[in-house]
Every structure is written in structure tokens, then in C-alpha cells.
């Protein structure tokens, strides 16, 4: 089942005199349950594509469909609600809200959704248990290692059963072993809960695990 459709999306950045075509007529469909990796060298447009899928950025032309809805007509607040309800994000680093503990970070979206404390606490504890990070519950981000923070970020991204989790180079700031552990975790969630993941990466550890690999070069898909 195709949950996301990218239809000839072009993104041009205008920095002063030069215009950079970060994405050049990219079309792509993403199916439920995929473990999709977007690879390509630095500057190829991976982050740009992920941001546009995640509704954080607008294309200059082309369309994005989420569950067959054209999101280009959505207002700022509607996009905000869409992200809250349907999308999970894992950024390269500094994902967590510094003043909140790990468990509060995981509960954050549920708090915004107005889910009662007892329910969200239970759900957060469950997911922490699944990911084996229970002992981090009451730690603040600055009391955790980079790898621990990324695992909490994974928990936060998947706790609401999102349609899709978008992860922009989630292992880039981690050492190789920690990176592998994080990938294990996400693979497990993908297999057990059928959560769809889309990664950007030029890390072979990530690429090797892909259920499908998309190569970007100069803003164009060169293999699919």
C-alpha cells in the first residue's frame, strides 16, 4: 500500500546570485512497512527530500500526497497537526527538549494531543521497555550519551504509531557500534510493529539494511 507519493518535486535554493537545484523532478512512492534508505553523496539532496516529505519545507513545483491527500493546500496549523498525528522525526542530533526528562520527551506529543497522564505514561514506559531504555526514564538529555539520546528520540518518534518515521542521518554522530545498536532497534520496530522508516544516509551500515535503496545524485534519482 502506497502511503506517500512524491510527484515530480523540484526544489531550488536561491542563495544570492546562484540558484541551486537541490531536487530535480523527483518522483517516488513509499509503501507501508518499508525500511527505505535514501543514499547519495553530500549535497545530493537527501535532507531536502526528507524535509519536503516531512512537510517541513515546500517544493517549488511538484506535489506530495500523504495517504492520497495533497498536502500543498494545507495551512500552517494543519501541517502542524499532520506532523503531530502522522509523522515521526529523528534528526541527526540534539533531538530532545533539554528541560524535559527522557520519559517526558517521549510523552511530549501525547501531551500536545491531550492524552491523559496515566495513559501516556503507560505508553511511554511500554515503548522504553521495548527498546530497553527504561533506566533512562528520568534522565535529562544532558545526562545521556549521544547514543542514548538517539534511542530516546526513536522511542519518541514511534510512540504514537506514526504513518512514517523520517530519520535524517540518525547515526552520523554516533560511533559505529552505537550506530549499529540504534539500527537494530529501528529494524526491530520495523519488523515487529510494521512501522515505515525512511532514512537518509551515506553510511554503509545503514545502506546495507535497507529494504529498498534510492540513490540521489545532483537532486535526481539515479536508481530505484
Amino acid at each position: 500500500m502506497e502511503i506517500i507519493k512524491v510527484e515530480s518535486v523540484t526544489k531550488i535554493y536561491n542563495t544570492g546570485a546562484i540558484a541551486v537545484k537541490a531536487l530535480d523532478s523527483v518522483s517516488l512512492g513509499i509503501n507501508k512497512g518499508e525500511f527505505l534508505v535514501i543514499a547519495g553523496e553530500s549535497g545530493s539532496g537527501k535532507t531536502t527530500l526528507l524535509n519536503i516529505i516531512g512537510t517541513l519545507d515546500n517544493p517549488n513545483s511538484g506535489k506530495i500526497y500523504l495517504e492520497n491527500n495533497d498536502i500543498s493546500r494545507y495551512s500552517k496549523d494543519e501541517l502542524s497537526d499532520l506532523r503531530l498525528n502522522k509523522l515521526g522525526f529523528i534528526f541527526q542530533a540534539y533531538n530532545l527538549i533539554p528541560v524535559l526528562t527522557a520519559i517526558e520527551n517521549i510523552e511530549f506529543s501525547m501531551m500536545l494531543l491531550g492524552i491523559p497522564e496515566s495513559v501516556r505514561r503507560k505508553k511511554a514506559l511500554e515503548i522504553m521497555n521495548d527498546l530497553g531504555i527504561d533506566e533512562l526514564a528520568n534522565k535529562k538529555p544532558n545526562q545521556m550519551s549521544g547514543g542514548q539520546q538517539q534511542r530516546v528520540a526513536v522511542a519518541r518518534a514511534i510512540v504514537n504509531d506514526p504513518l512514517i518515521v523520517l530519520a535524517d542521518e540518525p547515526t552520523a554522530n554516533l560511533d559505529s557500534k552505537t550506530g549499529e545498536n540504534l539500527l537494530d532497534l529501528m529494524e526491530k520496530m520495523n519488523k515487529e510493529k510494521n512501522i515505515t522508516f525512511v532514512f537518509s544516509s551515506h553510511d554503509n551500515k545503514v545502506i546495507n539494511r535497507a529494504s529498498r535503496l534510492i540513490m540521489l545524485k545532483d537532486g535526481q534519482i539515479i536508481n530505484n
Binding site: 516531512g54 506532523r83 522525526f89 533539554p98
Partner: peptide, 16 residues
């Protein structure tokens, strides 16, 4: 700004 950015990405409304 960075953490506000993350909060916004997660679907936090601006008014919050």
C-alpha cells in the same frame, strides 16, 4: 531556536 525548531517539527503549535 534549535529546540523550538524540533518542537515545531513534532507538531507543536506556535502559540504554545
Amino acid at each position: 531556536f534549535r529546540e523550538f525548531g524540533v518542537m515545531l517539527a513534532l507538531g507543536t503549535r506556535h502559540y504554545i
